[in-house]
Design a protein around this nucleic acid. Structure first.
Length: 436
RNA sequence: UCCGCAGUAGCUCAAUGGCAGAGCAUUCGGCUGUUAACCGAAGGGUUGUAGGUUCGAGUCCUACCUGCGGAGCCA
């Protein structure tokens, strides 16, 4: 008899199957026990009647503790009370190990305790749903670009110098020199876009900033498409199509996960084209009115970047992601192409997720001219020699191009509707959390 | 880095300055359809650390440590 995964148990009604997993929980009622078995694909309730099993099997189940590893044999049948739910009429068990008292009991726990037990916390129902959702969303992301004939070109994790000069970088020893962990693959994507036209990178990214919020990790995965000959409007179209497809695919293919997470589906169903597109100036005006109406605490100072409460307010005006474009050039990275209509503005866009989830995408059109790019590098006090190869791209067939970056954990956080980004990563790296 | 809050049993939390307690987990017992099952019993404590006030400190004061929440920065 072969092993069957719990997710497939419904295809084996009436058959005897073998499930290899762990004891999730057990309830007993005299001569009847209800062990819940977990195997990584799902959870199934077993039923053990004292009169139907051997003395040894009965005693074995009595001795099992939470998370003990077991191989359970039994016949699949429909739950007598719940339609479309299947249970296992157990007739045998093989104990792999009796687990020591399990720290994560079926009651509430504090976040500190759960984080230090992250390696065990991942076994719980909610974390299971989140990681499955993350896995599927990553699949949707890759499929979106693959199906549009983008080439996946990986960018290096170890880099010789700052990419943007804005964020703080992690420094690591590299033989006799130092190297830095990448904070973005974007500059490399611009090189590969000139070689392959439509590219994307997807990999880990590092920010050494001492951010202590529910939106930040020091290590996160970022997907970054870059397209040759695409302008700002084009990249806004791309981002809109991208987000819409991911949300639609999630709604269609992740019902079970969204149900466990108790996600309000109507909020996701609202995510449809077209997304509102407003300029920085329009957003600033919106904030001014919001302040005058007493809906915001602090007045917004025109010319600055939006703060977190500002973003939340702007996003709260819409039921779907909003795109804010053309920020003042001075608050954005040095490589942003200036707006020909107003050179103090950059051709950039941020996508703000609804429900207060904040920025999930940042992108824009990149600078084409060698001369202005060099100026930008100097204005940001960046070492010119570190960017020689990047400047080369403007010498050998420069081309208009655009792209964006999306943090996968931020996307998962929003779609799953969870409070804190740490639950969107299997082993989140944060300011004061490295272990496990 | 700044602001705010908190640290009591393995975990989640109680305890007017006056005998340190409950639920879960663990061990034992009961129950033939349970759903964080339930009912009964037992074991489990240097109240984050160091000092101070007091007849008496989990409780008040000071410093430190650790964590949480928020801000800035950003995906």
């Amino acid at each position: 008899m072969n092993q069957v995964y719990i997710n497939d148990a419904k295809k084996h009604v009436g058959e005897e199957i073998k499930i290899k997993g762990w004891l999730f929980n057990i309830r007993s009622s005299g001569k009847l026990m209800f062990p819940e078995i977990r195997d990584g694909s799902g959870i199934i309730q077993g039923v053990v009647f004292k009169n139907d099993v051997s003395e040894k099997v009965w005693e074995d189940f009595k001795n099992l503790t939470q998370e003990s590893s077991v191989v359970v044999t039994g016949k699949v049948r429909e739950h007598p009370k719940k339609p479309n739910v299947y249970e296992l009429d157990v007739n045998d068990v093989e104990i792999v190990q009796i687990a020591e008292p399990y720290p994560i009991t079926p009651k509430e726990h504090g976040i500190d305790f759960l984080m230090t037990n992250r390696h065990l916390w991942l076994r719980s129902r909610r974390q299971f749903a989140l990681m499955r959702l993350r896995s599927k969303i990553i699949g949707f992301v890759r499929n979106f670009f693959d199906s549009r004939d983008f080439t996946l070109v990986d960018t290096p994790v170890l880099t010789p110098a700052a990419c943007e000069g804005t964020s703080t970088l992690f420094e690591v020893g590299y033989f006799d020199n130092n190297a830095y962990l990448t904070q973005s693959g974007q500059l490399y994507n611009e090189a590969t876009a000139a070689a392959f036209g439509r590219v994307y990178s997807f990999g880990p990214t590092f920010r050494a900033e001492k951010s202590k919020t529910r939106r930040h990790l020091t290590e996160f995965w970022m997907v970054e498409p870059e397209v040759a000959y695409m302008d700002l409007d084009g990249v806004m179209d791309l981002a809109e199509e991208f987000i819409t497809e991911i949300v639609q695919n999630t709604l269609a293919g992740c019902r079970q996960e969204l149900e466990i997470l108790e996600r309000d589906l109507s909020k996701l169903e609202a995510v449809k084209s077209p997304f509102p597109r407003i300029s920085y100036d329009e957003a600033a005006e919106m904030l001014k009115k919001g302040f005058e109406a007493g809906e915001i605490e602090k007045p917004f100072e025109y010319g600055n970047d939006f703060g977190s409460p500002d973003e939340t307010y702007i996003a709260s005006q819409f039921d779907r992601p909003v795109m804010v474009h053309r920020y003042p050039a001075k608050v954005k990275a040095f490589y942003m192409e200036p707006d020909p209509a107003d050179p103090t503005k950059a051709l950039c866009v941020d996508v703000l997720a609804p429900e207060g989830y904040g920025e999930i995408i940042g992108g824009g059109q990149r600078m084409t001219s060698h001369e202005t790019l060099l100026e930008g590098i100097h204005n940001h006090d960046l070492p010119e020699e570190a960017f020689d190869w990047y400047l080369d791209l403007r010498k050998y067939g420069t081309f208009p191009h655009s792209g964006f970056g999306m943090g996968i954990e931020r996307c998962v956080r929003w779609i799953s509707g969870i409070e804190h980004i740490r639950e969107a990563s299997p082993f989140p790296r944060m300011l004061y959390h490295m272990k496990p």
